[in-house]
Amino acid sequence: MIDVKVLGGGCANCKNTIKLVEEVAREQGVEIKLEKVEDMQDIMAYDVMSTPGVVINGSVVHRGSVPQRDRVMDWFSGE
């Protein structure tokens, strides 16, 4: 089970990121626990200054844009 958090207060790119993450997880048959972090103080706790940010198992792996599909696949295949 991979713990995924998407950080971002409801911007269009944040929604697209969530959609992409869900999609890739379904395609690869990976079980994930997806959480949206929208509260600004919680986002700042991860020290992310440009949203959307992506946190996998507690560490920030991406910030500032919708990630590339290949990168999301890499996160899920454990590389």
């Binding site: 911007c11 600004m40 700042m44 200054m49 949203t51 500032g64």
Partner: peptide, 17 residues
């Protein structure tokens, strides 16, 4: 620096911090 007004708040806080 890439900037989108949607991240103005986290950016602002990051600077203040």
């Amino acid at each position: 620096t890439p900037f989108c007004s949607c991240s103005a708040v986290p950016l602002f806080i990051g600077f203040v911090q």
